[in-house]
Simulated scan of single mutants.
Amino acid sequence: MTWCRWAATVICLAVVVTAQIQWPVPPVPDQLAFHGISDDRFSQLRRQARQFVEARPRQGFEFVGQRQDAAFQIYCRGVPVLWLERRSHYLLLQISLDARQRATDIVRLRALLQWQIEPLDYLEQVLAGVPKPVLMDRMLRVLAGEVPDGVRCGTR
């Protein structure tokens, strides 16, 4: 009887691993919180992100606006790699953990956007309830490994 349970466990684990290989889930994003900004300022950041995508027409990037000008995302070949979202008390800027491997240019765009907005300090983030990366996120970054050439965007 124990042999059957052991075999069933091995088969279940094999199915889970195979499913994850076939349909990879985008890595958990790295998050940074910033002070809230005006509608005009947010529109300017949104415009810069759109121009970033439009300047790279054949590199696999896609700009997706969301929620009545309160958020936008940039995708790399169908996988979200950067998002900026206005929340009630702060602005949240995120990039995926594999952005450096998947879309190197996104890291530069994030730096450009970050340079223009003021970050919240640690206490302000705690008081605002900003979700913070956890140890598991950092482990996923280490385990994520290399991104295949066919799913990368931009220059390397």
Rank of each mutant, 00 (worst) to 15 (best):
V64A: 13
R58K: 10
F42H: 06
V16G: 01
L32Q: 13
Q31I: 12
S43N: 15
Q59L: 14
F61P: 02
D39T: 12
S43V: 04
H35V: 04
S38I: 14
V25F: 03
F42D: 06
I37D: 06
F52M: 03
W23L: 00
S38E: 15
V15D: 01
F52G: 08
G60P: 13
V15Y: 07
R46L: 02
L32P: 00
E54S: 12
Q44G: 02
P27I: 01
V16I: 15
R47T: 06
R67S: 14
Q44A: 07
A55D: 13
S43I: 06
A55K: 09
H35G: 05
D30E: 06
R58D: 14
Q20W: 05
Q31V: 14
G36W: 05
F63S: 07
R56Y: 01
Q31L: 15
R47F: 08
F42G: 09
A33W: 12
F61A: 02
V64H: 13
A14K: 04
P24W: 07
F63P: 11
Q51F: 09
V10I: 15
V28P: 07
L32A: 14
S43W: 10
V16L: 14
I11D: 08
G60T: 13
P57V: 03
L45R: 03
A33V: 06
Q44P: 00
T18H: 03
Q51G: 04
P26M: 02
L45W: 04
D40A: 09
V16H: 03
F61D: 02
Q20M: 08
Q20P: 00
V53Y: 04
L45M: 13
R58F: 10
V64L: 13
V17K: 09
G60N: 12
A55R: 06
R50V: 02
V17D: 05
L45D: 02
I21T: 11
Q66C: 01
V17H: 10
V28M: 08
A49C: 07
V17N: 05
P29D: 12
C12H: 06
R47K: 12
V17M: 09
R58L: 10
R50N: 04
S38Y: 14
Q31F: 11
Q59A: 09
P27G: 03
Q59S: 13
F61I: 02
V10G: 08
G60Y: 14
P57S: 06
Q51V: 12
H35P: 00
Q51Y: 11
E62N: 10
P27C: 00
F42Y: 15
H35I: 00
E62D: 14
R67G: 08
V16P: 02
Q31E: 12
D30R: 11
H35Y: 03
Q48P: 01
P24N: 04
H35F: 03
V15T: 05
E62F: 05
L45H: 03
R56G: 02
F34V: 01
F61R: 01
V16E: 07
D40F: 04
E54F: 08
Q22C: 12
D40Y: 05
A14Y: 05
V64E: 14
S43H: 15
